[in-house]
């Protein structure tokens, strides 16, 4: 089985700082993988590398066999990678509906001339898009809120809307950047179900960056741990839980002397 995403010895250097070093890992189709590490370990940088915001200094990233570096972020989204942001980045002046509609632009068959002429084919497509968005909102119980400004949603709903917006690009790989941040325990519980539900319903691979161990351990099939941009462990939640280097990295103690 060929990997959905494959990082090979990826390194990025900012001036003298090596934010990510020789990082390699793969994600299989339909897999739910967690990426964890202490603050400043370079998790978000990994996301920015995968989504083309940064270009690696060395190494290669493949998505379904296609080389990612050199593509612009919007091209990478078109290839089938979608993401959410650590600090929610919805389009603040748009409604819930229009936030999702933004993701439909790249799937549209009819471009600018059709938008100007507004012929029947174009109108049919606009209706289809509308139905599709409402269906998607329906699945996540936000249909009733479709036409309210996105800013008036609760914090948890804004996080969910960001996930819906990412899903609307019809990705094969979804990157979630700390989706549980700022959620209360009940919301976190809901989020765990939601992520698993998305994986099963849309049949996509998910890479999850998360601080909350309960969330990560609870749903991920495999976990990759990085510290100072370098992978220190990879394995099942059970492996990771008992890995001395991981414990050392998180607790800052000399866990078994492996952390020289």
């Amino acid at each position: 089985m060929s990997a959905t995403l494959q990082l090979e010895d990826v390194t990025i250097q900012f001036g003298g700082l090596r934010a990510v070093g020789d990082l390699s890992f793969g994600i299989q189709p339909g897999e739910l993988v967690g990426l964890i590490g202490p603050n400043g370990a370079g998790k978000t940088t990994v996301f920015n590398l995968i989504t083309g915001v940064y270009t690696p200094t060395a190494g290669q990233i493949f998505f379904n066999g296609i080389k990612i570096p050199g593509h612009q972020p919007h091209q990478i989204t078109k290839l089938g990678i979608a993401r959410t942001f650590q600090n929610i980045r919805l389009f603040p002046s748009l409604s819930v509906f229009d936030n999702v509609r933004t993701s439909m632009v790249m799937h549209q068959q009819h471009g600018i001339t059709h938008a100007l002429v507004r012929g029947p084919a174009y109108r049919d497509e606009e209706k289809l898009i509308e139905a599709e968005i409402l269906d998607l909102l329906n699945i996540f119980d936000l249909r009733g809120m479709a036409h309210v400004p996105c800013k008036s949603l609760s914090y948890g709903d804004q996080r969910r809307l960001e996930i819906i917006r990412a899903l609307a690009t019809k990705p094969k790989l979804l990157l979630l950047d700390e989706p549980a941040a700022g959620m209360n325990p009940t919301e976190k519980e809901g989020l765990m179900h939601l992520i698993q539900f998305i994986r099963d319903k849309f049949d996509i691979a998910i890479l999850l960056v998360e601080h909350d161990m309960k969330v990560v351990m609870g749903i991920c099939q495999r976990i990759i741990v990085i510290e100072y941009g370098v992978k220190i462990a990879e394995g099942t939640p059970a492996d990771i839980r008992t890995n001395p280097r991981v414990i050392a990295a998180y607790l800052g103690t000399d866990g078994g002397g492996e952390h020289a």
Binding site: V53, Q72, H74, L94, V105, R165, A168, T169
Partner: peptide, 10 residues
């Protein structure tokens, strides 16, 4: 509204 988010939506 947000260029970076826009790029991420394709």
């Amino acid at each position: 509204d947000d260029e970076i988010a826009g790029e991420s939506m394709g």
